[in-house]
Each structure stands twice: as C-alpha cells, then as structure tokens.
Design a binder for these strands. Structure first.
Length: 767
DNA sequence: CTCTCCCTT
C-alpha cells in the first residue's frame, strides 16, 4: 500500500514555497515524519541551508535519520545526519539534520537567528512538550527577522487550528493515515480510582474469554496499580494468558518481555502512559483504557509539585485507542461512560503551563529576550509562573532584582544542560574546590532513579542500599555510590548485586563528562575535596530557595516560601535518621503527602549565605588569637530573625580589626548592662559561677550554674536569652580576653565558644 | 512518616 502522504507531495512543496509557516496534520501511519524531509530535500530546500527536523525522543531522531539516509542512499552522518545528547553524527555536508528538540534549543542559545537552517520541521508538535512550546514561540519571533526561513509544524491530532492561528493563519494540510478501524465499547458507569483495579482485571478476563485472538494493551496510572491488576488476574488462573507489566522503572530484562511474542498465548500488557507515545508494540488488537493518567503539576505560589491522578483528555484517550488499529481492525474498551468522555477537556494542558518556568526564563535571557512576559507562547503561562521564575533566578543569583540581563553566574548557569538550581551548585563548587564532586552529584540529581527495588526483593534491595547511604545527605550518598561504582571498574554485575540501575549509572557517567567539558570551557579547574561539609554546602546553596525547617515531630516547613507539612520521603537516605533542624530538598512533590526528596542536612553556619534576609552573622567572638600573627580568626554567631543564636562560623580578619571589634563590643555590652561573669576554680576541678542579674530580665533575679572548662579568671559577658523552647538560659555572647595577659603560644587556641556550646545546658533556677 | 507519568539540553 502506498503511503497516503505521497499524494500530497506537490501540495506540500508548493505550500512551503508560498508560505513562511505551514501546518501538516497527519494521523499515525501517514509517513509524514520520514517523507516530508525527503520532499523538501528533493525540492531543493537544502541548497540555501540545512533542513532541521526535531523529534521529542532520542530514539525517534536517530532511527528516522537512519531510515531516511537509507532511502536517499546516504550513510548516517553524511548527507543525512542526526544529533542527540552525547551523539553527534553530522558533518559540514549534512543537509538533513534530525535532532531532539532540546538540541535545537541549544542552537538557539548559540545562534538566535538559526542562520544555518533554511527549513525547520517540528514533529509531534501535538505532544506540546515544554521544548516544543518554547521553540514555537522562538520561531514566531525569529520569522520577524528571517523572511527566508521556512517552518513546518507537524501534528498528529486535530489541534491544527491553534497552531495555524498562532502563525497568522498558516495553511493547514491534512494527510490521511493508514489506520484500521477501531470500534469503541463504552463502559456503563463511571468508575472511581478505588474500583478501577478490579474493574480493569475483570474487563481483561472477559475479553480473554469472549473475544477472538489478539493481544491486549491496558492503560493504568502507575506501577502500583499495574502490580495490583497483574496480581488480580494471576489469582483468576486464566489459561493461555501472559501478563507483562510495562513502565519506565522496569529493569532491562523485564522490558524485553513487552516485545517478545508468545505463540499460542494471548499477551496482556498492563502499561502506564509509556505505551501511549514512547513505545510502540506490534500486534495489539484490543485496548482497555482506564481513562486515568498521572500528571505532574507545578504550583508557583509554593514552588512545590504535585503528582495527581486525573481524568485523561479526549485527545489522549483517542491516542490510546489508536494503539489497537496498527496492523488490523481492533476494539477499544473504555471503562467509562460516553457521557463522561464528552465532558472531558479536549486536550491535555500543555507542559509549559504545568512546570517551573525558571529554566525557560533563564534560556530566554541567555538568548537575549529581556521582556519575557511579552514573549508569545501558543498558550501563555500565568503571571504567577513568571513571578516564581524571576524570584527563583534572583535567589540563585542568576539575575538581579530590577535589571533585565543575566549576571555572570546566570550566564554560566545557562550554558549547563541542567535545571537552574542544579547548575547553581556547580558554580558554587568552583569557589570551594569541589567541582568534580558536585558535577557528579548534579549528574545523579538530573538523571533517573538509581536505587532499584524489584518486586519480591525489596528486603534484599534495602539491605544492599543501607551500606551505600549517607545518613546526612542523599547528595553525599550519590557521591559514595559513584566512588564504589568506580572501584568496581564500572561493573554491571556489581550494580546488579547492589540493586542499582546500571543504565542510569552509565548515563550519569555520560552527563559527568559532558559537564566536565563545559566546565573546562569556563576555565574551571576539575577539583575534588575530601571535606564532605564543603561539598554539602555547595549543594545546599543551589537548593537554598527550598530551605526547610523542622516544625513538629516529622514535619518540616518552608523558610523562604509558604510550604507546610512536608515529610522526608521514605526513599531518602536521611529518612528516619536525621534530627537536623534545617534541610534542603532537590524536589518537593505532593502525592499522598507532601514529600521532600533528595535531602541534605544544613549546618546553621551556612544559613547567612543561603538566606541572608533571614539569618545574620551576630556579634563577633574572638575565638583564637595568635600573637605576632597578622590576622586573627574570629567566630561570628549565626542569628535568626529574633536574635537567637543558631550556630557560628569563622572568618579571618586583621588582628587590629579583631581588637577594635572586641573593644567596641565590650563598651556596647557594658552600656546595655550586660552581665560580666568571671570564672573561678573550685576544689572539684570544675568551674562555676553564681550571678545576680537585673538588667535584661524584667527585674527578676536568676541563679545560674554553668559547668564548663574555661580559662580561669577569664571574664565573659553574657545575656539572658529566651530561647524558642521557652526556657531561659544564660549564654556567652562573646569572650573577652585580657590583652595584657600572657598570650598563648602561636597555633594554640584559647578556650572557645564552640567548646562552651558543647557543654551548654546551664541549669537555672529562679530565686 | 513509608514510595512517582513521561521526556530532554
């Protein structure tokens, strides 16, 4: 049978010649993906530049390039080339370039005029991925500058009017498909989420009993539902039935079963949305559709995401139906009523309206688009989404409040193929000499789930994972996994034994090297640190905007944003082990609860750097004083917005400055009537004091005893602090040295506030 | 306190 699109060859070529933009609507099997590029090439459009074709997935870009190369009589990488992440098979002679849409976006960042291209074809535009929507906006803008550029938007469903209107009523060419008819069988009543597993299992059993031979494809929302459907069918003990789950987190061996044929038996694939677009299975005759999907949504007010089970759109359900008619006529059983279907939205909400815009806005600014709110999208995101993107980028230091362009940090972030927050970590790592470590962590954070927990082996998997986990940080856990993987010499068997996903680790390896190359181009030295606190701090700096503070029992709340009732995800390395007051998370997602994933404990002394508007360095304390040295290490308390001391950090200042600070503080303390305490040796060997105090305690007298090893005769200034627990304690505000006392030998620290802090717990009783 | 669709630079 001849491809239907061949009949439209001349019309398509003519329309492209006459118009800057055309929209081609072709059903599955129309051959538009392979044929339109060939038409354009044969019509001479490659003479003035490259014909670029974008695909949403890597396999689609590489496999169609190989197919078209065969038709034209070229080898891939010559006349017909492809470029996807990690794999560039193009040369200067490449006239037809297939690529993922992410690659075309990169090219916009390098050359916003796309000067090399004569034609750009955006395939699968109906999927409305974030990248496609961004590219369509960029192309509309570019067409004002490049009158010679030709754009072809290829879409599978009936969304063509929207695209046509967006591009000033561009002509639409319809190409019929080569689909076999698929009869729809409607459900009698609406089924809710609770009942759907049993209803699905019963429907599959009934089809198996009453319908002629042919494989079945069932659509459910997630791994858990799939498992329950399979278990339910197994209990029915049906004969000649093979049950095959299909979802993204399946190990490689299991995935192969999806495509295998089982002679004499009926194959039943119970799948997530992976089978709607990403994988195509031959020989499906029956589709059973639950009508639900899991969808990620982003909430700009709080910065959290939610993974929700929602009713699938009409176009999505139609796409599922089409999976049955690829090789012969089929049937689609919908487990919902026709009246319910009619009330559903026509299309799935485009991704650009359901994600954080921070990465898109960063890329826009990098391309030179300053007025981002005026950028024309097919479906413009909300004002709140733009506001969130701005605030996030300001918090990361990529832009400055009140100015349009990117900072130097922002420019470097935009060059890294990572989410802005993850990119920010690496910039921070450069300052602290741990770029290799943090780039490795970034590769893990941007990749897929590395810890595998196969069905039936959960206990063995958990046991293997415990040995790899760092109880203070998922980021440091990733670093440990990487070190062990290197020690194993990148051994697949080691991955298998330790229940780690080997494919993900190989991808991490590729991402690492890509990042190293980019960092080298920035002039960053590849550095490693043995200090895990330094590495963790760089990670925390990137995630500072999602700083979480412990609230009650197991729940955390946002410090910089309004986020409440967040729980550490059970899959996190710090789950059940952390008692840190602050943590950061790489992701906050609401499912059954709001969970923080990718967690790292935060030390109090990092807080003034992470959130300067909420945490300040307090009054300085001279902790160490070296005679004859040019500088002294002073320790600054970390105070929260109420003046509570949360920790301390050290910095080096000239000795003269340290002395000046001290003297000023002594005067200041005395003027405020702060208590001066002098420690005296007791026979027990302990130091203690009894103090009377009036100045800051509302006229009440306090008796305090403090057990700590401190220098005899050293005076301390103290203040009464009402802590957040509601208990009153006496804390040293700073230590005063007598400068005419014999100085300690160089390098010998005097007793420090840290030491006191460890022994904190002054017992107090009111008189 | 107990677990998440799919992609991609």
């Amino acid at each position: 049978m001849e491809l239907p699109i061949l009949k439209e060859r001349d019309r398509i070529i003519q329309a492209v010649s006459d118009n800057p933009v055309i929209v081609v609507v072709g059903e599955t099997g129309s051959g538009k993906t392979t044929q339109i590029p060939i038409f354009l090439y044969e019509a001479g459009f490659a003479e003035s530049g490259v014909i670029g074709i974008t695909e949403p997935r890597r396999v689609a870009a590489t496999s169609t390039a190989k197919y078209v190369a065969g038709v034209i009589g070229s080898t891939p990488g010559d006349l017909v080339g492809y470029q996807v992440r990690f794999d560039d098979e193009t040369t200067v002679g490449t006239a037809l370039k297939f690529m993922t849409d992410g690659i075309l976006l990169r090219e916009f960042q390098i050359d916003s005029n796309l000067s090399r291209y004569s034609v750009v074809l955006i395939d699968e535009a109906h999927e409305r991925s974030q990248n496609v929507d961004f590219i369509l906006g960029l192309l509309k803008d570019l067409l004002k500058r490049r009158r010679d550029l030709k754009v072809v938007v290829a879409s599978a469903t009936i969304d063509e009017q929207k695209f046509s209107n967006f591009f000033n009523r561009a002509p639409v060419i319809n190409v019929s498909g080569r689909m076999f008819p698929v009869e729809v069988v409607w459900g009698k009543e609406d089924v809710d989420e609770e009942m759907i597993v049993e209803v699905m299992a019963d429907a599959i059993a009934e089809i198996h009993r009453s319908e002629p031979e042919g494989d079945i494809l069932s659509f459910m929302t997630g791994e858990d539902q799939i498992r329950r459907v399979v278990e339910s069918l197994e209990r029915m003990k049906l004969t000649d039935l093979v049950l095959v789950p299909a979802h993204a987190s399946l190990p490689w061996e299991e995935q192969q079963k999806i495509f295998a044929s089982y002679p004499g038996k009926r194959k039943v694939i119970v799948a997530t949305n992976i089978a709607e677009t990403s994988i195509t299975i031959d020989g499906i005759v029956y589709v059973v559709d639950s009508g639900f999907i899991k969808q990620m949504n982003f909430h700009p007010e709080s910065g959290i995401q939610s993974l929700d089970v929602v009713l699938h759109s009409k176009s999505g359900c139609e796409q599922r139906r089409g999976r049955a008619g690829r090789t012969q006529p089929g049937k689609c059983f919908r487990l919902y009523a026709e009246s319910d279907f009619r009330e559903r939205p026509q299309f799935t909400e485009p991704e650009i309206k359901r994600i954080s815009l921070a990465g898109v806005v960063l890329a826009m600014k990098d391309i030179g688009i300053d007025k981002v709110e005026e950028f024309e999208f097919v479906d413009p995101p909300s004002r709140e989404a733009f506001h969130e993107a701005h605030e996030t980028l300001i918090a990361l230091g990529a832009i400055q409040r009140g100015s349009h362009g990117l900072t130097d940090i922002g420019k470097m972030m935009a060059g890294l193929p990572l989410e802005p927050r993850i990119a920010r970590m690496i910039i921070e790592a450069e300052k602290h000499g741990c770029t290799k470590d943090v780039a490795t962590i970034a590769a893990f954070l941007s990749g897929r789930q590395v810890f595998a927990r196969p069905k039936g082996k959960e206990i063995q998997a958990d046991r293997a994972h415990v040995a790899l986990k760092n109880p203070a940080s998922d980021a440091l856990t990733f670093l440990r996994v990487w070190d062990k993987y290197e020690d194993s010499d990148f051994d697949n068997q080691w991955c298998y034994d330790n229940f780690l996903n080997a494919r993900v680790l190989r991808e991490v390896d590729d991402i690492r090297y890509q990042l190293f190359n980019i960092l080298e181009s920035y002039g960053f030295e590849p550095t490693e640190s043995s200090d895990t606190a330094v590495i963790a701090k760089a990670v925390a700096m990137g995630l500072a905007y999602s700083l979480l503070e412990h609230r009650s029992r197991h729940s955390y709340g946002g410090v910089l944003r309004q986020i409440d009732d967040v729980f550490i995800h059970p899959g996190s390395a710090i789950f059940g082990l952390s008692n840190s007051r602050w943590i950061v998370a790489s992701e906050v997602v609401r499912t059954t609860k709001t969970y923080a994933r990718g967690c790292t404990e935060v030390k109090p002394e990092w807080l003034p750097d992470m959130a300067p508007q909420h945490f300040k360095r307090g009054e300085p304390v001279v902790a160490r004083y070296l005679k004859g040295a040019e500088s002294a290490v002073i320790s600054k308390a970390v105070l929260d917005g109420y003046g509570h001391e949360l920790g301390s950090s050290e910095e080096s200042v000239p000795v003269a400055e340290a002395i000046a600070i001290q003297k000023a503080r002594v005067r200041d303390a005395e003027s405020k009537g702060l208590l001066k305490l002098t420690f005296h040796n007791e026979a027990s060997g302990r130091y203690s004091f009894t103090a009377s105090f009036v100045a800051e305690a509302g006229g009440k007298r306090y008796k305090a005893s403090y057990h700590a090893k401190v220098e005899e005769g050293v005076p301390y200034y103290c203040k009464v602090v009402d802590t957040y627990l509601g208990q009153t304690t006496v804390e040293p505000v700073f230590q005063v040295f007598a400068f005419n006392n014999p100085a300690p030998s160089p390098g010998q620290p005097l007793s420090s506030v840290e030491e006191l802090a460890q022994k904190r717990g002054a017992s107090l009783g009111r008189q």
